[in-house]
Simulated assay, not measured.
Amino acid sequence: MVLLEAAGETAQVLLDYVTPRFRDFSPGEFVWRQSGLLADLGYRRVVTPPGMLSPYYDRVGFERDGDSWVLEVRP
């Protein structure tokens, strides 16, 4: 489950949850990289809240920016 808050072309991650059974990164890989949904919705950037617990974001294309993770969305 992913819940985002829109701020123009930036989406702020409010919730990113997967049940333990599916925590092999494939759901995140699909949502953040493969689906094209973020670009289709007009987002160019996704930002996580500071201090995310157990982050996997570096494995799906996000880069560290201070205490947050940022994904530049490809059109």
Rank of each mutant, 00 (worst) to 15 (best):
G61V: 06
R23Y: 10
D40C: 15
G8S: 04
P75M: 03
P75I: 02
F25E: 14
R21W: 13
L3C: 10
L3F: 12
F22K: 10
R44D: 02
L53I: 14
S68Q: 14
V73I: 13
V13K: 03
V18W: 12
V13F: 05
S68K: 12
A11G: 07
L3M: 10
D24T: 11
S35R: 14
V13N: 09
D40K: 13
R64L: 06
F25I: 09
E63L: 11
E63V: 12
E63N: 10
F22P: 06
L3A: 13
R23N: 11
D65W: 06
P55E: 12
G36D: 12
D67I: 01
L71H: 01
E29W: 10
G51I: 06
E29M: 13
D65Q: 13
F62S: 00
L4E: 08
F22Q: 12
G66L: 14
P50D: 11
R33H: 06
R74V: 08
L38G: 00
S35T: 15
S68R: 12
V70T: 04
T10I: 05
R23P: 07
D58T: 14
F22M: 11
D16R: 01
G8Y: 01
V31W: 09
P50Y: 06
R44A: 03
F30Q: 07
V73W: 01
P75W: 05
G36C: 05
W32S: 00
E5Q: 12
D24R: 15
Q34R: 15
V70L: 06
G51S: 15
V2E: 09
R59Q: 07
P27L: 08
D65E: 13
L53F: 12
F25P: 02
E72V: 08
D58A: 13
Y56T: 02
W32D: 00
T10G: 00
G8V: 00
A39T: 04
P50S: 07
S35C: 07
D65F: 09
A6W: 03
M1F: 15
R44W: 01
D58W: 11
L41E: 08
V31C: 04
T48I: 00
W69S: 00
S54T: 08
P50F: 05
A39V: 04
F30C: 13
G66N: 14
G61E: 03
F25M: 11
G8I: 00
Q34D: 15
R23I: 06
G51L: 15
G61M: 05
V73P: 00
G66V: 11
